[in-house]
């Protein structure tokens, strides 16, 4: 088995098994979606209008919640040092770890979205749009979050600080994602323009995230 496949499977299995905590994210997502109507009122028309935004914010918060597990365990048991000693390109290691993390925490969010969208009275086309934008956008959140996770890896309890550091960096993802998802309900707004920008941000994060996170992890180890 190629080492990339091995690394991906190892991280994925560790995340979804007992104690990995990957599915906590979906539960949190459900909690956020449930709590929103209590805040804004049960008006179904209003919920249909803001539903896509609620789902996006829920997905963002759930992603932030799981980020501190991205490198923490590997640093604690010394696996991170082994990756460095083995001479593997750290950028690639980070990218594979992000992919596994996304498959374990981000993908369940995307899969749960159509179901949770029903609570928010979303139209079928809006459900499709918000799911599609989340498929494209949540990898960007994980990749950007990797920078914060790499920078705070040496902190004992860096979870909240990590979220504060990552939120400003994830604003463009949120803007393009929600713009695209809500555009299907409007007659004038363009759906594809923000969607393409969202894709661009994800690709950009795919480069900047692993490179900066890898640099931060190298400094954290020496």
């Amino acid at each position: 088995m190629h080492w990339i496949t091995a690394l991906f499977l190892r991280d994925f299995k560790l995340a979804v098994r007992v104690g990995g905590g990957a599915l906590i994210g979906v539960l949190f997502f459900l909690a956020v979606v449930t709590v929103f109507p209590f805040g804004v009122g049960p008006d179904l028309k209003l919920l249909a209008r803001i539903g896509s935004a609620v789902l996006w914010i829920g997905a963002l918060l759930s992603t932030l919640l799981g980020l501190d597990r991205l490198f923490q365990a590997d640093r604690d048991d010394g696996t991170l040092d082994l990756y460095l000693l083995a001479g593997r390109p750290m950028e690639l290691v980070v990218l594979v770890k992000c992919a596994a993390h996304w498959a374990a925490t981000g993908l369940p969010l995307v899969l749960a979205t159509p179901l949770f969208a029903l609570f928010l009275n979303l139209e079928p086309i809006a459900i499709g749009a918000v799911t599609l934008t989340l498929v494209i956008g949540t990898p960007a959140l994980t990749l950007i979050g990797a920078v914060g996770a790499g920078v705070t890896v040496s902190l004992r309890r860096g979870g909240v600080l990590l979220a504060i550091l990552v939120v400003p960096l994830s604003i463009p993802v949120l803007i393009f994602g929600v713009s695209s998802a809500t555009a299907v309900l409007s007659a004038t707004a363009s759906f594809t323009t923000p969607l393409l920008y969202l894709g661009a941000v994800t690709l950009f994060a795919g480069v900047v995230g692993p490179v900066s996170a890898a640099a931060a992890l190298r400094y954290a180890s020496d």
């Binding site: 790499g150 920078v151 960096l169 900047v208 900066s212 640099a215 931060a216 400094y219 954290a220």
Partner: peptide, 11 residues
């Protein structure tokens, strides 16, 4: 210093 420098540059 160096992790924060990385964060500053990403910002």
């Amino acid at each position: 210093a160096r992790p924060i420098a990385i964060l500053t540059l990403v910002g």
